[in-house]
Each structure stands twice: as structure tokens, then as C-alpha cells.
Design a binder for these strands. Structure first.
Lengths: 156, 156
DNA sequence: TATTGTTATACTCTATAACTATA
DNA sequence: TATAGTTATAGAGTATAACAATA
């Protein structure tokens, strides 16, 4: 008899913690006129300037088609710009404008503040351990990413 | 100069890991004819049978208005039923039907399988530590939940 | 032919607010 | 008046697939 205790079930705990921090921070960035996914794009471009759309989709975990329109909205707001890549004529490079960099710089301290709230009471070692485990978790799921759903186990 | 390294930024790592496990598992449950949020409702009702809509919103991290229609869809599929609560005439109690319980039982082993993939290479102690920290994280954010966005810090 | 990105469609989820019925 | 739930609407994101331009 296989059962499930949500209080010990990792995907549930991950979703619960993620949802809470995301909704709280979404309300905060909205005061700066952007949505949470838009902030994620700006943060990814802060990490590495000028990414192709496909790379940006990878680094933000946002679907390419969704991202294409999201970049359009950011462009309408004057925060990013699209440039035709010099090498490959098919690909598009996305980069922040001066206004986009300024807004990113204004939001970063707020982002740190929320991280501090989330990690209140954590030692530096604990926080590092948590982050390391989340990175391992991401890597572990790589095999299933863009692959077949896990095979149903044969009934015996 | 306050900067931000996404590779060390908790909300980013949380979103990345959560998105990956969620999209992979969503594809798996879709084969059973339900969406991921629907599965979350079924799992919450498996954890505790017969919850009022408000409680269910709490335990699934789904907005009440979204949940109301989600429960409607599950009802259309014959997986849950709404009952007027005996005590308070305003509230509605949601419970699984026999078919709902059967479907939940079919998905549970699959859910465990995905958790195992995510936690591959983790010792039991590490997995427990991770889960405990995610619970603490959730609790830490409680203060901000349904509250004002964190105050902008005064410029000096 | 394969790849990169855009666009269209239908569906789902969110956010807000108006509304009903109870309390 | 306040609370529990439903419904309406608009805005965003997801999933698929069709499409254009380039390789």
C-alpha cells in the first residue's frame, strides 16, 4: 500500500515555498511597473548581457513562444531591445536599454531583501547547503527535461 | 555596489528547480487526463478528506476564485463532489468521489517515482534537511503573505 | 531539411471586483 | 456588516502548431 504524506513530499514543499516567495515578490516588483516574469528576464540579462532568445528561454525557464511576447512587452516599455545577431541571421539578441539597466539596479536591493526574509534564521552553511541541493535537484531532472514521461511501472 | 549572482540567488534556484520538476510531472499526469493543479487538489484531499473550499485553497496554494472553477472541472470529470456543509450554510465541503480516489491511487506511485528522480544521489539525511529547510522557508514568508510589500529602504 | 524566432489559437491561472447566500 | 463561495472580466503564461527567414 503506497501512500503519500504531503508534509514530507518534496514537490509539494517546493511548490508551496516557491509560490509563497513568488507571490510576495511579484507584488513588490509590480510597484516598479513590471511582472515577475519580466523581472526574471531583466535579472537574467543582468547576469549575462545580450543573450539570444533561445539562451534566454533556457536561463529564465520560460517557454520560447511566451518569452518572445514577453520580450515584446519589455521592448514596448523601453527596457530591452532586439538586435539581429551579426553571425547567424536567424537569431535575435536581446539586451537591456539604459532604462532597463537602471530599473534592474533599483529592483536588486529589493530582491536581496526578500531573500533575506526567506532565509531568516538560516546559518550561512545551511543557506549554502540548501542552494547546493536545489542545484543538484535541477540537474537530476535534466534527463527528464524535454524527454518522455517516466515509464509506468509494469503491474506484477 | 549591490549586485546579484543568480547562481547563488535562492528565489532563482527555487523557481528553476520547481519549474523543471513541475513541467516534467505535469506531462506525466496529463496522461491520466488531469492538469497539475487538478492533481494538487486530489493530493490535498488524499492528505485530508473533505475540506472546505477555503481550507483547500490554503493547502494547495491556489487562489480561491481559481480553485472554485478548478473544483468545477474536477466535478465535471466526476472526480470530486461539492456538499453543502452541515454546520455553516455558507461554506462548501469538497470531497473525492470513488473515481477520484481511484485516480489518486493510480497517480501516487508515479509521484513517488518523480520524487525519487529529483532526489537521486541524496542521502536520507540530506533529503530530510532539504525538506525541513523548505518548510522553514515557507514559515518565514508567512509574515509577508497577505501583507504589505517589504518597505523600500530609505536612501541615506 | 533543420533551426531560430514569431504569431495564432485555445486553454489555464491570476487578480480584482461584483454578486449571492448565509451568519 | 462580515464571511464563504461563485462568477465575470481582463491580463499573463502555457502548449501546439503553423509560419517566415535563414542556414
Amino acid at each position: 500500500m503506497t501512500d503519500l504524506d504531503l508534509g514530507e513530499y518534496l514537490p509539494y514543499l517546493l511548490n508551496r515555498a516557491g509560490t509563497r516567495i513568488a507571490t510576495a515578490f511579484a507584488a513588490a516588483v509590480r510597484e516598479h511597473g513590471v511582472t515577475l516574469p519580466m523581472w526574471r528576464v531583466l535579472a537574467a540579462l543582468h547576469q549575462r548581457e545580450d543573450q539570444r532568445l533561445g539562451e534566454l528561454a533556457e536561463s529564465t525557464s520560460i517557454e520560447v513562444s511566451t518569452l518572445s511576447r514577453l520580450v515584446g512587452s519589455l521592448q514596448d516599455r523601453g527596457l530591452v531591445e532586439r538586435r539581429r545577431s551579426s553571425g547567424d541571421g536567424r537569431s535575435v539578441t536581446v539586451g537591456r536599454t539604459t532604462a532597463g539597466r537602471a530599473l534592474t539596479a533599483r529592483i536588486i536591493p529589493l530582491a536581496r531583501r526578500y531573500e533575506d526574509v526567506a532565509l531568516a534564521g538560516f546559518s550561512a552553511a545551511e543557506a549554502d547547503a540548501l542552494k547546493g541541493m536545489l542545484r543538484r535537484l535541477y540537474t537530476n531532472m535534466a534527463a527528464l527535461h524535454d524527454a518522455e514521461p517516466v515509464q509506468e511501472r509494469e503491474q506484477v
